[in-house]
Nucleic acid binder design. Structure first.
Length: 785
RNA sequence: GGGAGUUUAGCUCAGCUGGUUCAGAGCAUCUGCCUUACAAGCAGAGGGUCACUGGUUCGAACCCAGUAACUCCCACCA
């Protein structure tokens, strides 16, 4: 990782070291990688060179004239700056030269002879006119049809340049005439390439004008700008000057204005490598998760440009190119080999010595070593058939950030194909970017990134981890907020408290187990959740897997299961229930471990779970395997839970304390055997007795769950009016619901078009609603209202 | 300018070939409880014109078209 970021931070590290007073020639100190990686990088470079995929070419770099170095894109800071837009006249050369006085050029608005013999361009950089290679106009621009095929003279130096046509020029910006300066602007360079224009570089490395400029030689670019404006003005070439705001790049280190500068660089051809790398992703050999990145990836790969692999830095792998004094070069692994090759290039009796060779001072792009990572990390270059690489290549999952999908991931795929003949991994999981609550990227300059150690101090390592994972929905950025960590801490606390409860139980082996239903229910519920969690993991939905685990532990295990089996105060628990509970708890620890490694491991080794052998650790414990699910039991317990909720509601609304026992009578219309759940009603609902009845009970609070009727007798008499309005309200809702179902079923086109199972569901909805309505009406009439 | 994506409850997000997972989850909020594991808790409750407009369909959060806002990547304007 240090290597990966060296390009970005290498300079900063050097500065710091210098400040500390380290004494050596830092500017000439190279930081290189370990020998084996270094060798692999050089070998692959040579390999690609021999295939003809490495070549030298011209590229525009960001040049810092003050630091006299090239700077990377990340080190260029763009700022909005007030500038001047200079409107400059160029004289059109024509056969019928009209001699006219330039000095009285005040009236250009109407058709004076001037407008036909001059064209006007707008530029923020008048000092570069000496580097102009052409004037470009849009072929569709009707204003300038008369200029097609003409030539113009650059003011002051009177060099003749052509007028070229290209749709690149926007007609409504400036004057519609663009000066083309291939040496000092990237777009102009490309335009120049397209139209075969000469490249005239008028700037020295320190930003002063060189002899190619012809005038103002030796002046700094900004001084030259002012002076040339004066000269143009004096000779009547300056039409006007406007204020103009635009973005300008500044060097991060020296704050100098960045100068685009053409330079020779090493390139790696991409088209032949991109094709197979694209295919791996399109044919599913490599899966990108989330899938949306496939589109981006394809777009990139189809429009890939050749990769500039050389960098003007001191830290990095030096390019294995060696120059002869005459400018020729050879590519070789060592100086000796280079010398050997170089001799072949020179005449027989050449005086060339090995010391005459000069190695290229540029280094390779950081990604030129990083793309080898999946192979080099297992020593796959030096020893291509070793056990590790055979086992780990291709690996299952690569987890990385989407912003380096192209820089790193795509290139690893290319390198994998080229150097090992296959994809380096099967799945790429792209994480989100961590942002703060306001959606801003976490960064040092904004100061909005919390210190992880502070967070851990506050919420615990598990709490912070859970917090991070809770807000990591698959494929989205994560909006980080401390409250998630708080939730994580609370969850860890909950687990701890559940442990304390179980730990405190007295066990009586002779006690009978009357918790079979609860135990069987939880086992089913656990298996159901396990399926769901596995499925979430398989789809890389980490936050959802966590939430499913969270709910299993908090709701099902703590809130329901433990409450169901919890022995009454100071009573022992039976041995069987206890043993099952310990097993469940242990399985839960295994599920929790990926999210909460510390607390789960800590509890794992407590003697509550029995003695552990030396290496019996939660981290390597096998996850529980899928077991049976009793679907009917699960469904029935859901109904039981609803009933208990209803009872709790009654307590709430009638201000009955939870400690006071209530009786419950059931008039079952379904086949559910409620007696089976009596223990649960008793423990979780504090129900004294469960009676199965065949008739309605008058004077009791009634409610309906599913299609069964429940009655809770009250000591005090009920307020019939309040009961009545409650039932009326429910009736109103049901009637409306039934109406909508009926209208659907009455619709001919629905009946003929909808799938049979949909119709069946609608029919069941209708039947259920009707049954409920019937009960409600009976209850209402019993209340006599 | 080119490309990709997002828009569902106060917040962060599910919603998997249009119909029981259809309007959901967690957090936050409100109400009542210091009930013997847990107030960092328990028990309840409220809360949404599924960005907007139109279309397709018996039926749209979901499909199509347009509009708006936001985000990211790449290229950057004389």
């Amino acid at each position: 990782y240090a290597w990966e970021w060296k390009e970005k931070y290498g300079g900063i590290i050097l500065e710091q070291l210098k400040k500390l007073g380290a004494s050596c020639d830092w500017d000439r100190t190279r930081f290189t990688m370990d020998d084996e990686l270094s060798e692999a990088v050089i070998d692959t470079f040579i390999h690609l060179y021999k295939k003809g995929w490495i070549y030298r070419g011209i590229r525009m770099v960001n040049w810092d004239p003050q630091g006299k170095t090239a700077v990377s894109d990340e080190e260029v800071i763009r700022k909005e700056v007030n500038q001047k837009l200079y409107y400059i006249r160029y004289r059109v050369v024509s056969s019928e030269e009209v001699s006219s006085e330039l000095s009285s050029a005040g009236s250009t608005t109407h058709h004076s002879p001037l407008t036909t013999h001059f064209l006007t361009i707008a530029t923020t950089r008048p000092e570069t006119i000496m580097a102009d290679a052409a004037i470009c106009i849009n072929p569709n621009d009707e204003r300038y049809v008369h200029l097609h095929g003409k030539r113009v003279l650059i003011p002051l130096i009177n060099r003749e340049i052509p007028v070229i046509l290209d749709e690149y020029v926007t007609m409504d910006f400036g004057t519609g005439c663009l000066k083309v300066t291939p040496a000092h602007d990237l777009n102009d360079y490309e335009l120049g390439q397209k139209h075969n224009l000469p490249i005239i570089d008028i700037l020295n490395d320190d930003g002063t004008l060189n002899e190619h400029a012809g005038i103002l030689v030796g002046e700094d670019r900004f001084a030259a700008r002012k002076k040339i404006a004066v000269l143009l003005e004096a000779d009547g070439y300056l039409e006007k000057v406007e204020d103009y705001k635009s973005q300008i790049g500044f060097s991060e280190r020296t704050d100098a204005v960045i100068e685009p500068k053409l330079s020779m660089q090493w390139f790696c051809k991409m088209d032949e490598m991109a094709k197979p790398a694209l295919d791996y992703v399109l044919d599913g050999t490599i899966k990108l998760i989330p899938e949306k990145f496939v589109n981006t990836y394809r777009h990139w790969m189809e429009n890939v440009k050749d990769w500039c692999v050389s960098r003007q830095l001191w830290w990095g792998q030096q390019i294995p190119a060696w120059y002869l004094p005459d400018g020729q070069y050879v590519i070789a692994k060592t100086r000796e080999e280079a010398f050997h090759q170089a001799k072949l290039l020179t005449a027989h009796n050449s005086p060339l010595t090995i010391d005459d060779l000069k190695q290229d001072e540029d280094v390779l792009d950081t990604w030129f070593s990083s793309w080898l990572w999946p192979i080099s990390v297992f020593d796959g270059f030096k020893d291509p058939n070793n056990d590790d690489i055979n086992y780990y290549y291709p690996t299952n999952d690569l987890v990385t950030a989407p912003e380096i999908l192209f820089f790193w991931v795509a290139r690893m795929i290319m390198a994998g194909h080229e150097f090992r003949g296959g994809a380096p991994f099967k799945n790429v999981y792209l994480t989100g970017i961590v942002r703060d609550k306001l959606g801003r990227k976490m960064s040092k300059s904004l100061g909005n990134s919390p210190d992880p150690l502070d967070l851990i101090e506050k919420f615990g390592a598990d709490g912070v981890r859970v917090g991070m994972l809770l807000c990591s929905p698959a494929g989205n950025d994560l909006m980080f907020d401390e409250s998630y960590c708080e939730q994580g801490r609370n969850f860890a606390n909950k687990v701890w408290n559940a442990f304390r409860l179980v730990k405190g139980w007295e066990v009586d082996k002779n006690h009978a187990n009357n918790n079979q239903v609860a135990i069987e229910w939880f086992r089913s519920r656990f298996n159901e959740a396990l399926n769901q969690i596995e499925e979430n993991f398989a789809q890389y939905r980490i936050s959802e897997a966590l939430m499913a685990t969270y709910k299993l532990v908090w709701d099902d295990f703590c809130a329901w299961y433990l409450e169901m089996i919890k022995p009454v105060y100071q009573q022992p628990i039976d041995g069987e229930t206890y043993d099952f509970t310990i097993c469940f708890f242990e399985d839960i620890l295994k599920l929790l471990h990926p999210f909460m490694p510390f607390i789960s491991e800590e509890l794992w080794h407590d003697d509550l779970f029995g003695p552990r052998a030396g290496y019996d650790c939660c981290i390597i414990a096998q996850l529980p395997t899928n077991g049976q699910i009793n679907a009917q039991l699960l469904a029935e317990v859901e109904i039981v839970k609803q009933i208990i909720t209803q009872i709790r509601n009654i307590r709430n609304s009638k201000q009955i304390p939870p400690k006071e026992k209530l009786a419950l009578s059931v008039k079952a219309n379904s086949t559910i055997d409620y007696k089976k759940y009596e223990a649960i009603f008793s423990r979780s609902g504090n129900i004294s007795a469960l009676d199965i009845v065949n008739n309605k009970i008058v004077g009791a609070v009634s409610f309906i769950v599913s299609t069964d009727e429940f009655y809770v007798p009250m000591n005090e008499s009920l307020d019939p009016l309040a009961e009545c309005s409650r039932l009326q309200k429910e009736k109103g809702y049901l009637t409306g619901f039934l109406q909508s179902v009926n209208s659907k079923l009455g619709n001919q086109r629905f009946m003929s078009n909808a799938k049979p199972e949909i119709i069946e569901i609608e029919l069941k909805k209708k039947a259920d609603a009707e049954a409920k309505l019937k009960i409600l009406e009976e209850n209402l009439s019993a209340l006599a209202c």
